[in-house]
């Protein structure tokens, strides 16, 4: 516990310094107040947003969308990645197309999604899906192809074949790179969701951000940005980061 506090002391002090700098800039009145709110203004907006539940709803709705979009991406991406890695015909046909599509920024799928699904949840989840599934497919494919063949042979000689080979060798063998892929996938999903929500009339964090802009309420813009950052850090570092770190320690990577 004490060690943890010491470890956290440096970054926390640094953040405190940043806030102090922010406050000083505010006192210097370089920019008008409505363009450059004080830390206290942003804090009050945060408190107000959570008190009247608009932020809470925004967070829940955004999280619901990302869980659905990311969840479906995991299933499709993992299956597709394995199929492409294992079937040569797919590697020669589907693989180049996936690599090409991956270069398309996910928000470019929004017009298509709006026409296909209309102004509803499905459209935005589709954008999240398209932003995530290809990167997951590519990372699973790479991970499967990178399994040392000798490890697979060792598994075969110990009696693992067919589905057992997948269950006991291939899937555990790709776990470290799979987790890295999931982490990237999550950040792709998060980015896609935010850009989708900002362009598209919907409740959610992205729209709260745009509300701030429309009302010329810079404190709200910054407050929502902080919320988005905090959620990103929680998932990226605390959830994916922790699992990845434990796994890597176990493997000795």
């Amino acid at each position: 516990m004490k060690n943890k506090l010491i470890r956290l002391a440096k970054p926390l002090t640094f953040i405190a310094c940043l806030i102090l700098l922010w406050q000083i800039l505010y006192w210097l009145k370089i920019w008008p107040k409505w363009l450059f709110p004080s830390p206290a203004d942003v804090w009050l907006t945060l408190v107000k947003g959570f008190a009247n539940h608009t932020f809470i709803w925004g967070i829940l709705i955004s999280l619901k969308r990302i869980f659905i979009g990311f969840g479906v991406s995991i299933i499709i991406g993992t299956l597709l990645g394995f199929l492409i890695a294992k079937i040569k015909l797919l590697r020669e046909t589907v693989d180049p197309i996936i690599l090409g599509l991956q270069t398309l920024p996910s928000i470019c799928w929004l017009p298509l999604a709006l026409l296909w699904f209309g102004l509803n949840e499905k459209a935005i989840i589709f954008v999240v899906l398209m932003g995530t599934v290809l990167s997951l497919t590519i990372s699973v494919k790479g991970a499967v192809l990178n399994i040392p063949p000798i490890l697979i042979n060792a598994g075969k000689m110990l009696g693992a074949d067919g589905l057992n080979l997948y269950r006991y060798i291939l899937i555990p063998a790709i776990l470290p790179s799979y987790l890295t892929g999931l982490k990237h996938g999550w950040s792709f999903a998060w980015r896609s969701l935010m850009s989708g929500e900002m362009l598209f009339i919907s409740v959610g964090l992205g729209q709260l951000l745009m509300f701030g802009r429309e009302l010329n309420d810079m404190a709200q813009v910054m407050a929502v940005m902080l919320v988005i950052i905090v959620i990103g850090v929680i998932f990226d570092q605390l959830i994916f980061g922790k699992i990845e770190k434990n796994l890597r320690a176990k493997w000795g990577l």
Partner: peptide, 9 residues
């Protein structure tokens, strides 16, 4: 095998 090929997990 020549390498130990133990399963690291």
């Amino acid at each position: 095998f020549q390498e130990p090929t133990l399963f690291p997990w």
